[in-house]
């Protein structure tokens, strides 16, 4: 799942560092992700994993790193199998 998230981050987050070199815990906002880009990433994740983030997860923390996203997805029942 981490690699799938990384691919989506590369596509939508608009970071100014190579996402391939960004650690799972690397701060995406610090890496240049704008708030508008974070919305694109959120929508991209929803489409790719066929989920809808509940309102209480629509915070910067949820999308702050690859591992934070993985944790949120895990909580939504998107398991490693996907």
């Amino acid at each position: 799942m981490i690699e799938r998230i990384r691919k989506l981050v590369a596509e939508f987050a608009g970071t100014n560092v190579d996402v391939g070199k960004l650690g799972d815990d690397g701060d995406l906002y610090r890496a240049g992700m704008t708030s508008h880009a974070s919305v694109q990433l959120m929508l991209g994740l929803e489409e790719a994993f066929d989920i809808e983030f509940p309102e209480d997860l629509l915070t910067p923390d949820t999308f702050s790193s690859i591992s934070a996203i993985a944790k949120a997805l895990d909580g939504l029942g998107v398991g490693v199998a996907s």
Partner: peptide, 13 residues
């Protein structure tokens, strides 16, 4: 919209 919730939370944070 829903994206706006995230934007608003970020703006406040």
């Amino acid at each position: 919209g829903r994206g706006g919730k995230l934007m608003a939370a970020g703006q406040r944070a």
